[in-house]
Design a protein around this nucleic acid. Structure first.
Length: 197
DNA sequence: CCGCCGATCTTT
DNA sequence: AAGATCGGCGGG
């Protein structure tokens, strides 16, 4: 990759073992890597478990959401609307469901592969400006559900190049949900054109 | 630029 | 029957 130093997210276990509400804004400006594709995360949402009616884990463990109950630092990838994949970073201690939905990112490297994977995209902004777009651009699907981001056992990792999360991120309610829609558990990088609408 | 609607299939 | 979405189409 041509993005300079790529180090694991600082204190990965320490950070990701925390509550998703604390973890989520800390993931802004980190880099999601898959092979030669790199994207900078610019929009996230926090999902809790039993306390969060909007969470896939609300009704307890199932085959689909099993990864959410596992150790932090894994990818939880789910299929929805009959055609889309969305990716989360699992957080919270093992046994406690929690995750951060990766909603949007800024393309950084491997743009050729992203364009190829996103035939519908007309502008660079179309590549990763939504949770399913991001997965399509980065080539994430069922094969990556449960992938370990620390050891990159499936070629996917979360790293930092030293850019800190924004001091004052944008904050608002989560998008596309009806249950527990009032909680301001969505964060984004202010003024970034890749943030979804 | 914005809003509406259909696609498509898994989970509830 | 709804869903942690997207893209195409029509209107302003």
């Amino acid at each position: 990759m041509s993005t300079g130093a790529a180090l694991p997210v600082p204190g990965p276990i320490d950070l990701l073992a925390g509550d998703p509400l604390e973890v989520a804004p800390q993931l802004l400006n980190t880099l999601l890597v898959h092979g030669d594709r790199v994207a900078r995360i610019v929009e996230v949402e926090a999902y809790r478990g039993i306390e969060d009616p909007a969470s896939h884990a609300y009704r307890g463990p199932t085959k689909r959401n099993a990864v959410m109950f596992g150790p932090p630092g894994r990818l939880y990838v789910y299929f929805t609307y009959g055609m889309h994949w969305c990716a989360n970073v699992v957080c919270g201690p093992e046994g406690v469901a929690g995750a951060v939905l990766l909603r949007a990112a800024a393309p950084v490297a491997g743009l050729d592969a992203m364009w190829s994977a996103r035939r519908a995209a007309r502008t660079e902004r179309d590549l990763c400006s939504g949770p399913a777009k991001l997965c399509q651009a980065m080539g994430l699907n069922r094969d990556h559900d449960g992938a370990d981001l620390f050891v990159a056992d499936r070629g996917v990792s979360l790293v930092t190049d030293g850019m800190s999360p924004p001091l004052r991120p944008g904050v608002g309610v989560r998008i596309g949900i009806r249950q527990a829609a009032e909680h301001p558990w969505r964060w984004w990088v202010p003024d970034d054109p890749n943030v979804s609408r």
